[in-house]
Simulated assay, not measured.
Amino acid sequence: MDKVMSNKYVIALYVLPALLLILAIIYVPIVLTGYYGLTEWNGIGAMKFTGFDNYARVLQDNAFWQSAGHSLLLAVFSAVSLFGYLLVALVLSGKVKGANTFRKIYLIPMLLSSVAIAQLWLKVYHPTNGVLNSFLESLGFSNPPAWLAETSLVLGALFIPILWQYAGFYILIYYAALKNIPASLEEAAKIDGANAWQIAFRIKLPLIMEVIKVTIVLAVVGSLKYFDLIYVMTDGGPNGASEVMASYMYHQAFRGFDFGFGSAVGFVLLLICLIITWIIRKLTESKDTIQYS
């Protein structure tokens, strides 16, 4: 068996199906998207090659940069929220009564589809008989706001269900990483007189720093290309106040039937994600790697 697996041709034969699949569903569509951005095309008729006109139009489009600002704001909120998820995971990983129950509760949003979550929060934010406004009225607020209809409030109102939706995912990742730390390290720290905060921030967090870096990239990039819940709840409204890059791309391509420009928006979105991922990796790069066994 070792002789067979050391054969380069056999290794290539095993790798080839996965490589072809990755090429077909990831890299080929990326190349095609970049090419379609060089054309004027309504999705049905003949393509007309226009060079970099669509890309220049994207860079000069104020509506696109407004949507990019909304996406970046969501990315910042998502990255900051990771600190809260990490604190919850630290608590759950300790000897806390009922930790298993709370861990299951936090995972509930992961079991729901984005459409179901959107419908749930639409009921919460309903201006007349929604749960939130009914609660505010019971506290004496006579004229509570229409959360999804006011341009100054809609983004904040959308960020709450988005962050709630993925809370369980990140808590589970941090919880698994923390539980993987040998108990002997914590016991040794306690013998040396370390308290709970010192153990958490000087022992546990440095040991899972690589996991934290990965979650930062996942949260930021995921926020930049976020689409589904915003599409269902507001469709980018009112007046583009909740438009993000992915929804802007969808509107241009599938509603405006401008697939050339929509493809250019999608390709620029890809480049922005790659650049920001590179920046995050550079900012969090460390020459020292802490290992434990």
Rank of each mutant, 00 (worst) to 15 (best):
I279V: 15
I44P: 05
A219S: 15
I212K: 11
W197S: 10
M110C: 10
M249C: 06
H126A: 10
L205M: 13
N54M: 04
Y226H: 13
Q60S: 15
S81N: 15
H126M: 00
L274V: 12
L82E: 08
V76A: 13
R57I: 00
L112P: 12
A219D: 04
G193Q: 04
M1I: 05
S184K: 12
K179C: 09
M233I: 05
L283Y: 08
E40R: 13
M233E: 01
A116F: 11
N133G: 12
V131H: 05
N129H: 11
L82G: 14
A177I: 02
T284K: 10
M47I: 05
P144I: 00
V265D: 03
T277E: 03
L224V: 06
A167E: 02
K3Y: 09
D53A: 15
W164Q: 07
V91P: 08
R281P: 05
T277C: 06
W278G: 06
V15S: 09
P206S: 04
A149S: 15
A89V: 07
S93A: 15
G222Y: 07
I290H: 07
F267T: 11
L283H: 06
I105P: 10
F141R: 14
E40C: 00
L132V: 05
I105G: 03
Y231A: 07
N100Q: 08
F141I: 15
L122M: 15
I203T: 03
Y250M: 03
K190G: 00
T50S: 01
I30W: 09
L120R: 09
L87F: 12
Y174A: 07
N100V: 10
K225Y: 04
L172S: 13
G45I: 01
V58L: 02
Y14L: 15
R57T: 10
T284C: 13
L269C: 00
S138C: 00
L38G: 06
I117Q: 07
V131A: 14
L23H: 04
V96D: 03
V88Y: 07
Q119G: 07
A246D: 05
L92M: 07
P182C: 01
G193I: 01
P206D: 02
G69E: 00
M209N: 13
N129C: 04
G45P: 10
E285G: 09
T277L: 01
L120A: 11
Q165C: 08
L132W: 10
A79R: 06
G240F: 13
T284R: 08
G45E: 01
H70Q: 09
Q198T: 08
K104G: 10
I117L: 12
G260S: 01
A63H: 11
F261P: 06
I230Y: 12
A12R: 11
L224A: 05
F267H: 07
A183D: 12
I160D: 02
L86T: 13
H70I: 12
S134L: 08
L139A: 00
F257A: 04
M5I: 08
W197V: 08
A56F: 14
E186A: 02
Q119S: 06
Q252P: 02
V80P: 14
L122V: 00
I203K: 02
D53W: 10
I105Q: 03
Y166W: 15
A246M: 09
L155I: 09
L148H: 14
R281V: 08
L270F: 12
L23P: 11
